[in-house]
């Protein structure tokens, strides 16, 4: 779970939580209704919710709690436990930098710093002001032979050095 300072200050353009699309809620309700049983599927439902909304703000957690017939505290407990679930939205192009051991040994820390510099000194876990990019560190993407690895959306960049960062960002502008 991450909280974002830019979200607290209202600096980054985050979609208004009160106006999350209604049809997405309907899709989620349909998904829950189609489950063979509700018991044991909290993580499954949250995966679905995050794939629909992009993140899991309080409003979505409340909805999940109500659909699953569980207390909100239980939903929050699960969401906050797993790093895959996020309560803040990601950028349009989420940057995930692998910080597994192989990547670390080959200099992933410098790559993180370089991304932060190029994107205007945002912290890890934060979104840029224009909502375009967000930086996250992952534990391991299992591509250790290509270390250090960076993923932007579905695109994988292998053997990344700090010098390559500017070029990588320009692919998305």
């Amino acid at each position: 779970m991450q909280t974002s300072t830019c979200q607290n200050s209202g600096d980054c353009k985050i979609p208004d939580r009160a106006t999350l699309p209604r049809d997405l809620y309907r899709k989620l309700a349909d998904f829950v209704a189609a489950l063979p049983q509700k018991e044991g599927h909290m993580v499954t439902v949250l995966h679905k919710a995050q794939s629909l909304f992009g993140y899991l703000p309080r409003e979505v957690q409340e909805f999940v709690a109500q659909q699953m017939g569980e207390p909100l505290a239980k939903v929050y407990g699960v969401v906050s436990f797993y790093t895959f679930f996020t309560m803040v939205p990601k950028g349009k192009y989420p940057i995930s930098i692998c910080m597994g051991t192989a990547c670390f040994v080959l200099g992933a820390e410098n790559v993180v710093e370089s991304f932060q510099k190029v994107l205007g000194n945002i912290e890890v876990g934060e979104v840029t002001h224009d909502g375009k990019f967000s930086i996250d560190c992952l534990r391991c993407v299992g591509a250790c032979a290509l270390a250090p690895v960076v993923m932007i959306g579905e695109k994988v960049y292998a053997k990344v050095t700090p010098d390559m960062v500017k070029g990588i960002i320009s692919d998305f502008s």
């Binding site: 018991e39 044991g40 599927h41 534990r139």
Partner: peptide, 25 residues
Amino acid sequence: KYGAGAFVCGEETALINSMEGDRGE
């Protein structure tokens, strides 16, 4: 069933809790 990014879930009892939809403790 899908994990959700928690290293401790590789431990079998934590994994079972996670499969049941709970916190993977």
